[in-house]
Write a protein that binds this DNA or RNA. Structure first.
Ligand SMILES: Nc1ncnc2c1ncn2[C@@H]1O[C@H](COP(=O)(O)OP(=O)(O)OP(=O)(O)O)[C@@H](O)[C@H]1O
Length: 973
DNA sequence: GCCCGTAGGGTTTTT
DNA sequence: CCCTACGGGC
């Protein structure tokens, strides 16, 4: 790889430019907008123009300001200009918008009350700051008691988004208040405005709190700069006089506040040149705006416009497909401004290819094999080739396949450090040394760092269910042979080593810094020695990741009051929960290797050969998922999100991918990415190559996947299990069925290995238990004709309460109060106000063949028209209108209904979900057919359990809330 | 052609 | 959990 762009000799500053480029470079005074497609030399023009301004003596270098969107572009621009302006005095100001803002604020910030010594908070620091001050932001709906930090990321994102425009907190507040005042009769609208008001207040408090302490976030670097320009005419004037020529690259990626800054800066001399390509705007998700290009003409009606159409990169075949694709988009400058950006070139080459393969693995293998062949034949070098993926995790199979083919590669992932095994191991170690150690940390450490066999661990954990002690204690006993639990010799030795290490390191941790403790651990384990002279690619990556983790430790050390393990763990926990997951270490960056990149990362680069992979339904384009909190449209005109706009952005992304290719473009896709349905080729391929609708879905080939099931090493990290004898009945419960449904591996952890004694219960589970106990008690007394007093119910609630896992004492107290208040209204409503139930906590058990299903119904009411079965829920109230739908879809109720049917031959008259916290009730019924399906589902799960099928089904959501996550190696998060 | 149940995904990245 | 797309059934 190399950065796109020429390095022509410095002799003539106009040499080699085509007429349009030349016109742009020579453009004299006044505003100029250059719009052009990919590979037309836009970046080249900016660099050459800077050189020309200097060389022609029209400007001194210090009078030139070139703004880019990211560091990389700024560095690259600087390098190009350095080559073009030989005397080494090219000190034109080339910077990112943020760097420029930071500089301006350092010099002039004091005029708007920002002391020059301010600290810039990065995304992680900002999240930590928010977490620390969450209670001071006056949040309500955005900090629910069940999970106060639930919206923390969203809030941070929202506060940043406000600054992209910028919309002041004050402005948002006025908007919300006005809205509330005029929508008195419309509860839905009121709710929206109330939320906006809550956000406005929180944003204001967050800002004030931070600024007072000398913290500014990234958004502030821009928003405060703009405010400075508006509030301090002298500062603005100074900068206007200093920078007489302003240039902006990648203008389509700028957001409104950036444009406003540039406008102010050039308001007097109007020497502003911007270049951009609306078709390559791929950061709209982050506030970039086509609006800016349109507004350019609005603010500079006399602006000159230049369109570049000569393409210096790709073949005609590639350009033709790219154009056909991008023309599908409706929202484009070509149509709005009536210009033509159609790209011209004389170059020709092979037609782009599309390759369909049966499975994901075969797709990756095919690409890797092609690459290997091309490199071996000498036709290409590795660096000539790029594999472009839509999202980081799509890269995985390709990296594996390249490994297998022995093809070296570079993959700059953008996160994932904390998921790496070598890092998880160190984290588990640190926890195991601290007071906050949980059993799962020790389990994980033993399993993954010390290689204690899974069989031994399961036996130890199993023992815990009968012997109420600590895993640590059992391990101590195992290591000196004083337990009845059967442990392999290998396991015993490894456990002994681990415990010895832990004792020694615990000692070290008392009076040493975190970095020193970790180092001591790595020394003891011989890891340092091994990684000092890495013998494999994998070891090299490990070593670098460990170094990266030490950077996190260092960062902590530089801000920590006391550099000791327990404090570090609190810090790390917060980073992992709401901070940024750092990128894994990069490798092979500079050398002759294949580049595996996300399309976003590939922007601005060019390669002779490009593979665009996983071009299939749901992979590319991705689905439209809106997340985060939206800025009210009234305040952010032109800001719309819709699935069509999303698709257009994805299409631009595809356009960027295509136009990275100079000679060869190959798009691949597979039919089988592991799901149940066959995948079709991306609609973008149909559009670009005029293919019409993809062929009807053939039956998926399951060959590979079937083989996969017989892999001897799968599933990972689990002891091999014997198939239970056919005559032994399978016992299932609602919980077991639900767990298997969520993820077979979760079932395995919880109900086969029975690891629950070493897992930590979420505070919500404890809360739910306490409320349930109290509800059951109240109902039972009601049933017996002795309705309890509130004090009695409260007593049961209090005695079941566990004060663990809350954010703070205050949080626990408020949550307790919430439960108590709910119980009070529950008592009034359902005990004083309703007939007593027929049964409370009624146990049941029925057989389906050799499957035994058992459980307990919270409440049963028998009436003349049949039976009503009720389940109480303690989750936060979702919209009341959804309560019936929840009751309809609820698996637990289906199982109770089926139980009733099996035991009495009759379908219950009604099923109810009662939400204790809000008092909402959802009612539903179950038809015979529906129960039939429930029964089939149970039987299918039983069969899978019998056949020992516990392959993990990792998913974003399920893994993020799964109790087994700390000990699971398959987790998606 | 429309309704409903079921399957599948849950980005992208910079400062 | 929540939202969307698709395919089967009518
Ligand atoms: N006048 C020219 N003569 C020859 N080659 C040129 C000329 N102008 C630009 N190029 C080459 O064309 C390629 C694309 O240039 P550049 O990266 O500046 O284009 P761009 O418009 O910024 O592309 P993109 O929008 O895709 O990032 C580079 O390899 C560059 O060296």
């Amino acid at each position: 790889m190399r950065p796109a762009g020429p390095h022509p000799p410095a002799t003539s500053d106009l040499e080699g430019l085509d007429p349009e480029q030349r016109a742009a470079v020579e453009h004299d005074q006044g505003p100029l907008l250059i719009v052009a497609g990919a590979g037309t030399g836009k970046t080249t023009v900016i660099a050459r123009r800077i050189a020309h301004l200097i060389a022609s003596g029209r400007a001194r270098p210090s009078e030139i300001l070139a703004l880019t969107f990211n560091e990389k572009a700024a560095t690259e621009m600087q390098e190009r200009v350095d080559v073009l302006v030989p005397y080494g005095y090219a000190d034109a100001h080339i910077a990112t918008f943020h760097a420029f803002g930071e500089e301006v604020l350092s010099s002039f910030g004091i005029e708007i009350g920002i002391a020059p010594s301010f600290t810039v908070l990065d995304q992680t620091a900002q999240a930590l700051f928010l977490a620390e001050h969450l209670e001071e932001l006056g949040l309500d709906q955005y900090a629910p008691l069940s999970d106060p930090t639930k919206y923390l990321r969203e809030l941070a994102g929202f506060f940043n988004k406000l600054k992209d425009y910028p919309i002041a907190a004050e402005e948002l507040r006025r908007f919300a208040e006005a809205g509330l005042a005029r929508s008195e009769t419309d509860p839905a609208a009121r709710d929206g405005f109330a939320r906006a008001l809550e956000l406005a207040r929180a944003a204001d408090r967050y800002n004030t709190l931070g600024w007072k302490q000398g913290f500014v976030d990234f958004g502030d670097l821009l928003a405060l700069t703009l405010r400075l320009f508006d509030e301090s005419p002298s500062a603005l004037q100074f900068l206007q006089q200093r920078f007489r020529y302003v240039l902006v690259d990648e203008f389509q990626d700028t957001n409104p506040v950036q444009f406003e800054i540039v406008r102010r800066l050039t308001a007097v001399h109007r020497n502003l040149v911007v270049v951009g390509d609306d078709d390559q705007s791929i950061y709209r998700f982050r506030g970039a705006h086509l609006q800016n290009i349109l507004k350019f003409h609005e603010f500079f009606p006399d602006a000159r416009s230049i369109v570049l159409t000569r393409n210096y990169r790709s073949t005609r075949e590639i350009l033709k497909s790219a154009r056909r694709l991008i023309l599908v988009n409706q929202d484009r400058l070509e149509t709005r401004l009536l210009i033509s950006k159609e790209l011209l070139t004389e170059r020709t080459g092979p037609m782009p290819r599309i390759k369909e393969l049966p499975t994901e693995a075969e797709e990756a293998a095919w690409v890797a094999a092609e690459i290997r062949a091309a490199v071996e034949s000498g036709a290409r070098r590795c660096r000539d080739i790029a594999i472009l993926v839509r999202s980081n995790k799509n890269a995985e199979p390709f990296l594996r396949a390249l490994d297998e083919q022995g093809v070296p590669y570079y993959f700059p992932g953008s996160r994932g450090l904390f998921q790496r095994p070598e890092i998880r191991e160190m984290v588990a170690l640190l926890y195991s040394l601290s007071q906050d150690a949980r059993e799962d940390h020790l389990y994980h450490l033993a399993e993954s760092a010390y290689g204690v066999p899974g069989d031994d661990l399961s036996r130890l954990v199993h023992e815990l269910s009968s012997e109420p002690t600590k895993l640590r204690t059992l391990m101590e006993r195992a290591s000196n042979r004083s337990t009845a639990v059967e442990i392999s010799e290998e396991g015993r030795e490894r456990i002994a080593t681990m415990l010895e290490d832990l004792r020694a390191l615990k000692h070290t941790a008392r009076d040493h810094r975190v970095g020193e403790v970790l180092r001591a651990y790595l020394e003891r384990r011989g890891i340092i020695k091994r990684l000092r002279a890495p013998s494999s690619f994998e070891d090299e990556i490990k070593a670098r990741n460990i170094v990266k983790f030490f950077k996190v430790v260092q960062m902590f050390a530089s801000v920590a009051v006391v550099d000791r393990v327990p404090l570090f763990l609190r810090h790390l926990g917060a980073i992992m929960d709401y901070g940024e997951d750092p990128a894994v270490a990069e490798i092979g960056e500079e050398s002759d290797v294949v580049q595996v990149l996300t399309i976003h990362r590939a922007k601005g680069l060019e390669f002779p050969v490009v593979y665009l992979v996983q071009a299939a339904t749901d992979r590319f384009p991705t689905r439209n998922l809106r997340r985060g909190i939206d800025v009210p449209v009234e305040l952010a005109p032109g800001e719309r999100t819709s699935s069509e706009l999303h698709k257009e952005e994805e299409r631009r992304l595809c356009y960027v991918a295509f136009t990275r290719a100079k000679e060869e473009l190959i798009a691949t896709h597979a039919v089988d990415y592991g799901g149940k349905r066959p995948r079709q080729r991306s609609e973008f391929l149909s559009e670009a190559f005029d293919l019409g609708k993809p062929a009807p879905a053939q039956k998926r080939q399951r060959v590979m996947e079937e083989l996969e099931a017989y892999r001897t090493d799968a599933p990972q990290g689990l002891p091999p299990l014997a198939r239970p004898p056919a005559h032994e009945p399978i016992r299932l419960s609602h919980q077991r069925i639900a767990d298997y449904d969520t993820c077979p591996l979760k079932y395995h952890f919880l109900h086969v290995l029975a690891v629950d004694p070493i897992l930590t219960l979420d505070h919500r589970v404890n809360f739910g238990n306490a409320v349930h106990q109290a509800v059951a008690f109240a109902l039972e007394r009601h049933r017996l004709g002795e309705p309890p007093t509130f004090e009695q119910v409260l007593e049961v609630y209090r005695s079941s309460w566990r004060n663990e896992g809350y954010r703070s004492e205050e949080h626990a107290r408020r949550r307790f109060e919430q439960g108590a208040a709910a119980l009070r209204s529950f008592l009034e409503r359902e005990v004083l106000g309703e007939e007593p139930p027929t049964d409370v906590e009624r146990s049941f058990r029925f057989n389906l063949g050799d499957v035994i299903v058992s459980g307990r119904m919270d409440r049963v009411d028998e009436g003349p028209d049949g039976v009503v079965i009720t389940d109480y829920k303690t989750s936060e109230l979702e919209g009341e209108e959804h309560a019936d739908a929840s009751a309809r879809d609820n698996l637990q109720l289906s199982i109770y209904a089926l139980a009733h049917k099996e035991l009495t031959g009759r379908v219950p008259q009604r099923l109810e979900l009662r939400y204790v916290l809000g008092g909402a009730v959802g009612t539903s019924t179950r038809s015979e057919e529906k129960l039939e399906r429930t029964r089939d589902r149970i039987l299918a799960i039983a069969e899978s359990v019998r056949s020992v099928d516990f392959r993990a089904q990792p998913s974003e959501h399920n893994c993020s809330i799964c109790a087994c996550r700390p000990i699971c190696s398959e987790s998606a998060v």
